[in-house]
Design a protein around this nucleic acid. Structure first.
Length: 275
DNA sequence: CGGGCGGCCTGGAGGC
DNA sequence: TGCCTCCAGGCCGCCC
């Protein structure tokens, strides 16, 4: 489901409702998602502790207290819903955080994830491995991003789309935004990463940054499952040029948008103007 | 090592 | 109304 803009949308929302509050209850409705929940470590970090900040690294959300860091990944279909009740409202509600501010009514964050590709862990209990070997944050240093992508890509035959979707090279870019950034750069997604010039890496990096920032402003892209914690969709979908537009007219040339499989993922592009 | 593929899961859409 | 196949914003382990 979520790429950087969607995770950032959720991070902002969680920060708004959690920072300065404490978690009074942590209810688990199963023992695991992709990995077993480190329940006692999570309770130690979160229960009755002030939430100091909610950060994002790659597609991971970090919830910080003075006892440590809890880590959430939304997988493909993970969402948080903010409710007045702790009782699950839908199937696949896997854990619930009861959040309370002094003198206010308790509110509940329900984590719902039908496919269960998400994660909920703790730094020091395995989650630190999830964050090891991640490439640069695209919204941090632009120079570092360009330099890192160019250096890592030398002599690589991997298609550029797979290359930028690998979080070892740059984080946060998934199937939608890889397609969109390459369209804007007029780069064919199948072109070998090692054959692309430094100048093209600069242009592509600029488009990656721009498309991610624009999508954040629109609250992300909702294709199917993605929702903010109050249920709203993201509105970047109407700005997509290629993703999900197979057979529709290219907005730049007279071509039609193609869809081909690459490494098991649908790959949308315009064969007319992406060379 | 680099890179593709299948698997992890469930559910929605579309064909018959 | 089925029942089947394909597909889905991610990531990991396996295999060549």
């Amino acid at each position: 489901m979520p790429e950087l803009p969607e995770v950032e949308t959720i991070r902002t929302a969680l920060s708004d409702v959690l920072v300065g509050q404490s978690i009074e209850k942590l209810i688990f409705h199963r023992k695991d998602l992709r990995d077993p929940f480190p329940k006692s470590a999570l309770r130690k970090i979160l229960l009755h502790q002030e939430i100091l900040s909610v950060e994002r690294r790659s597609k991971y959300i970090l919830i910080n207290t003075k006892k440590g860091q809890a880590v959430v990944h939304l997988g493909m279909t993970g969402v948080f819903h903010y409710h007045d009740t702790e009782k699950p409202q839908v199937d696949h509600t896997h854990f619930v955080l009861a959040a309370k501010k002094q003198g206010q009514a308790t509110k509940y964050l329900h984590y719902i994830d039908p496919r269960r590709f998400g994660r909920f862990g703790a730094i020091g209990q395995g989650a630190e491995k999830w964050l090891a070997n991640l490439g640069p944050e695209p919204l941090n240093s632009f120079e570092e991003l360009v330099e890192s992508l160019f250096e890592k890509s030398r002599r690589r035959k991997q298609p550029i789309k797979s290359f930028i979707m690998d979080p070892k090279n740059v984080v946060g870019v998934g199937n939608i935004y890889a397609a969109e950034a390459l369209f804007r750069t007029k780069l064919n997604p199948f072109k070998a990463a090692g054959l692309i010039s430094k100048k093209s890496y600069e242009e592509m990096s600029r488009h990656i940054v721009d498309v991610l920032k624009e999508a954040i402003k629109q609250g992300g892209t909702t294709f199917r499952d993605f929702r903010d914690i109050n249920g709203q969709s993201g509105y970047f979908r109407i700005h997509l040029d290629v993703y999900g537009r197979e057979g529709e007219p290219c907005r730049r040339c007279k071509g039609r948008i193609s869809r081909e499989m690459m490494a098991g993922r649908s790959t949308f592009y315009c064969a007319g103007c992406q060379k």
